[in-house]
Computed example of a mutant assay.
Amino acid sequence: MNKPLAPSFFLTDLQGRTHRLKQYAGKVIWLEFWVTWCAACQDTLPKKEVLFRAIQHPDLVFLTIDVTGREASPDRVTAFMEQFPFTFPVLRDEGTKIYDAYGITSVPTTVLINKQGEIHGMYDETVPLPEVIGEIGTLLSS
């Protein structure tokens, strides 16, 4: 069964670096969509920071995308990042352009993209993190 190709994107992170989906071709990609006001995001992002630091695999890319179009004020991201000094890349959506392109309806949402550039799965906050990690393991071993 064919899976849908992940929509391409070209976004800038908080340090001004550009990230293109195609630059990560052939790798497993973990995309994490979030916003600063989301209690579930505030709860899970620190746990995902620990995973980001622990899982240093050459075939895994971890990117987060702040959905600026769902923020009360996009400027809140800077203060949020001062409060939570994450080391993973934080990309800024162009409003809800990438959020909408992926068909996402809530935050946080994790999107796993396989090495072929296809969406393997989408997981909201109700999916236990160990299940998502298991899926990453499956993707990395294939």
Rank of each mutant, 00 (worst) to 15 (best):
1 M>C: 05
1 M>W: 07
5 L>F: 08
5 L>A: 07
6 A>Y: 02
6 A>L: 04
7 P>L: 01
9 F>D: 00
10 F>T: 14
18 T>M: 04
19 H>V: 04
19 H>E: 07
19 H>D: 05
20 R>S: 09
21 L>T: 13
21 L>F: 05
21 L>P: 01
22 K>F: 00
23 Q>G: 00
25 A>N: 12
25 A>S: 14
29 I>Q: 02
29 I>A: 09
30 W>I: 04
30 W>D: 00
31 L>D: 02
32 E>S: 03
32 E>T: 06
32 E>P: 00
33 F>C: 10
34 W>S: 02
35 V>D: 03
36 T>N: 03
36 T>G: 05
37 W>D: 13
39 A>K: 11
39 A>H: 03
42 Q>E: 12
43 D>V: 13
44 T>N: 05
49 E>V: 03
50 V>P: 00
52 F>G: 02
54 A>V: 00
55 I>V: 12
55 I>Y: 08
58 P>D: 13
58 P>Y: 05
62 F>L: 09
62 F>D: 06
64 T>W: 03
66 D>H: 06
68 T>M: 11
69 G>S: 03
70 R>F: 11
71 E>T: 12
73 S>H: 13
75 D>R: 15
75 D>H: 13
77 V>Y: 05
79 A>M: 07
80 F>T: 12
81 M>I: 13
82 E>V: 06
84 F>M: 09
85 P>Q: 13
88 F>M: 15
91 L>V: 10
92 R>E: 01
92 R>L: 15
93 D>G: 10
94 E>F: 02
94 E>S: 11
95 G>H: 06
95 G>A: 07
96 T>H: 03
97 K>D: 02
99 Y>H: 14
99 Y>V: 09
100 D>E: 15
102 Y>T: 11
103 G>W: 12
105 T>G: 02
106 S>N: 14
111 V>N: 06
114 N>R: 13
116 Q>M: 08
117 G>Y: 02
118 E>L: 06
118 E>Q: 15
119 I>A: 02
121 G>N: 08
122 M>L: 10
123 Y>T: 13
123 Y>R: 06
124 D>Y: 10
124 D>Q: 08
125 E>Q: 15
127 V>G: 12
129 L>G: 11
129 L>Y: 13
130 P>D: 14
130 P>R: 13
131 E>Y: 14
131 E>W: 08
133 I>P: 01
134 G>Q: 10
135 E>F: 05
137 G>F: 02
137 G>W: 04
141 S>Q: 14
